[in-house]
Design a protein around this nucleic acid. Sequence first.
DNA 1: CGTAGACTTGACCTGCGTCAACGTGTGTGG
DNA 2: CCACACACGTTGACGCAGGTCAAGTCTACG
Lengths: 261, 261
Amino acid sequence: MTLRSLQLFVERLGAHTCLTEEERLVLLSLPTSIYQVSTEQALVQPNEPVQSSCIVLRGILAGTSNIQDGERQITSFYVPGDMPDLHTLLRPKANFGLRAICSSDIARVPHAALLEAMRRFAGISEAFARELVREGDVRSEWVVNLGKRTAKQRIAHLFCEMAVRTKMDKETHTEFPFPVTQAVLADATGLSTVHVNRSIQALRHEGLLSFVRGTAQIPDWKALAKAADFDRGYLEVSAPMRRLTLAPSEGLLVEQEPSVW
Amino acid sequence: MTLRSLQLFVERLGAHTCLTEEERLVLLSLPTSIYQVSTEQALVQPNEPVQSSCIVLRGILAGTSNIQDGERQITSFYVPGDMPDLHTLLRPKANFGLRAICSSDIARVPHAALLEAMRRFAGISEAFARELVREGDVRSEWVVNLGKRTAKQRIAHLFCEMAVRTKMDKETHTEFPFPVTQAVLADATGLSTVHVNRSIQALRHEGLLSFVRGTAQIPDWKALAKAADFDRGYLEVSAPMRRLTLAPSEGLLVEQEPSVW
DNA sequence: CGTAGACTTGACCTGCGTCAACGTGTGTGG
DNA sequence: CCACACACGTTGACGCAGGTCAAGTCTACG
């Protein structure tokens, strides 16, 4: 049932944006078609216009860019609840690809339905826009990761990010599934697979991280976060907010704005 | 006069989003305060909430992140017409900083006014959202740049990007101003200043790029773009579009959607 | 039980960082 | 008008993080 499958997606939006009951219901009852995609299958090709966006239900997708010599760089990961090609709503011709990293389930939602929902509900527009911002923040951290951190730090940081994004409860669990190969980690961190391998081993010897066949273990969260220079702040908003509302009485209604610029 | 100063900003939005005359006028007459900021001056600090967003009128700003050991990574540049902290509209607590790279002029616009404009005009909301997408695309290219390209390519790619973004007309000009130091280029490309220096020299010897005291010269655009693996597609939309419109007759009005997913 | 994809290891190489010194231009104050 | 300072650019020597190549080993799965 689709009401069930989009639950996680709506929770994701609700975490940063106040949605009315009606808006939640509209989102939950968006028309979807469910697909199962297999490892390395492409969902969106660069420069090929799309008419629908997808929502990850299970598995992991990755945004990928190919460069001249056949190598690829992964520019972001998407986990269940994410909408990886939200941006095609506004720019139907994507300029990077989207592919499954492991066998995954996705829901496809026609752009028409999403646009209609945005038109009618300010909260939905706002939630989508805030998702775009969040994605931008994540990518910004990736730039820092690739630009300024060592191999071990890059890998550690990526695992921290994924742990938080897959909602690993660090109080009660030290494990979370991250079904990727070392080659994929290499494509994401801008390293060679050989060096990824050695770096993971080094992290294991330091007791910071173990990663065996698609499941990660973080024995000491604080130690790993410190080593990775990881601060989860960029992934979260303290409380869901709402800034856009259809002013009931059309007019110059604005929020109070203290005079700090 | 502020009508004049926001011209470039509105053109930027108009390049990707169809705006009505009224929307243009609303944007042009947004309340602004004009400031001059000097080199290295911070405009937004991480985790410090802001109540207004700024528009670059002259000069260059940069998004910056600091890491543990006092080094910084620049995650994006902003040129006249850009709105670097548009995202704070939706997430007032930024998680990276914004500072001037050279002496610059900016216009500050209160969030309240921007939110009000978004509330009342669907085209303005859409234009802002599309700007967020564009920024995401640029950052995505930066990830590729840092992850998979050599020093010379990174620098070449950055100059290509800036040439296009500052609208260098490559038919008639081979020069454009890019008032940054080599140290700033190093912070942006994830390289050391020494290596930036040597790489620029190498590019000059190959006849691809010269960069002297803040002005860049690209004698052979095609050659540079090829060396940098640069494709300007990610910076542009073929024609301005409009996907969100207040449906005049409320209802299930949607665009035609061919059955491609 | 064989094959293919993932992981591992070792040897070697190189792009880039680091350090430290030295030019070169530009603005400032005497 | 000079001299000094300071920020920026340049150069050389050296070291190391991480790439590359090539040869295994392990594991899952048919």
